[in-house]
Simulated assay, not measured.
Amino acid sequence: MDMKKRIHLELRNRTPSDVRELVLDNCRSVEGKIEGLTSEFVNLEFLSLINVGLISVSNLPKLAKLKKLELSDNRISGGLDVLAEKLPNLTHLNLSGNKLKDISTLEPLKKLENLKSLDLFNCEVTNLNDYRESVFKLLPQLTYLDGYDMEDREASDSDGEVDGEGVDDDEDEEGEEEEDEDGEEEDFDEEDDDEEDEEEVEGEEDDDEVSGDEEDDEFGQDGEVEDEDEDEDEDEEEAEAGKGQKRKRDAEDEDDDEDDEEDD
């Protein structure tokens, strides 16, 4: 994809003045030059042109607010004087993997008064004796060269980013932490609900057992009551039967007495 088309796609129906970051990595430059990028990108702060086949940056438009420029893995060998002219507020510059051979090619960067970090990894100039000392001497405004300061202390993440980017990362992390906390709270709530459900189920089972025992007791008591009633009925029947036999015997005795009187 050529650079012009890529810029059009990156706009996504926005106007150039709305764009703060523009990434054009791996697209094709025309004759090794930047094409399609204009000074209408007045609010652009971050521009990435990694591996686009650049030989020259002479076609760079003036971007007064640009702070970070990525130009690694191209074929740039000089002509850096245009950077100070077009990008006066540049703070981070990455020229790793280009064709820079001599310290003198970096001299135009002296005019970038706000330049804080410079990367030259995999450039031939890094093989020179006293390379680091020479670059820091040439560019006294530099704080970090290839990610380390003069005392070989590594650059912090905040120093390695354009102003404003670190803040967004912190906000994202805080948002993730809040989501995690909310998720944990929900998990705890679900566990509590599960425990309550289990307790309710156990309680219902216990109630069923108790009610079953009570029913058995009631049945047992009813059975005993019924047995007692049956015994009382049998006693009454026996008593009635005994009375009947007694009345029968008495009647027979009376008949015998009458017979004896007649004989007399």
Rank of each mutant, 00 (worst) to 15 (best):
H92S: 10
D149N: 15
L142N: 09
C123I: 11
D157M: 12
L90W: 12
L138M: 14
L145Q: 03
K99H: 10
K99G: 08
T91G: 02
L87A: 09
Q141R: 09
S117R: 10
L80C: 08
G79A: 09
D119E: 13
K110G: 00
K116L: 12
M150I: 13
E113F: 07
I103C: 04
V125Y: 02
L100Y: 10
T91R: 13
A155T: 09
N98R: 03
P88R: 08
D81P: 04
S96Q: 05
S156G: 12
E113K: 15
E107Q: 13
N127R: 13
R153Y: 08
S96W: 09
I103P: 06
L106G: 04
L109W: 01
K99E: 14
N114Y: 10
M150Q: 15
K137S: 13
R153Q: 13
F136M: 01
E133T: 11
F121V: 05
K86M: 07
K137G: 05
L128I: 05
L138C: 02
N129C: 06
L109E: 05
Y144V: 02
T126G: 02
E85T: 07
E124C: 05
L145W: 04
F136D: 00
L100I: 15
N98T: 04
M150N: 04
T126F: 04
N127P: 00
K110D: 12
G97K: 08
L95Q: 01
K116C: 09
L90C: 06
L139P: 04
V82N: 00
P88H: 09
K101A: 14
L83Y: 00
V135R: 02
E124M: 07
K101R: 13
D102S: 12
N127C: 03
I103Y: 12
N122C: 12
G79K: 04
Y131M: 01
A84Q: 05
D102W: 10
N122F: 15
L93E: 05
L109M: 08
K99M: 13
Y131W: 14
L120F: 12
L95C: 11
L93I: 03
V125G: 01
S104Y: 11
L139S: 03
K111P: 02
L145G: 06
L100S: 02
L118G: 10
T126A: 02
Y131I: 04
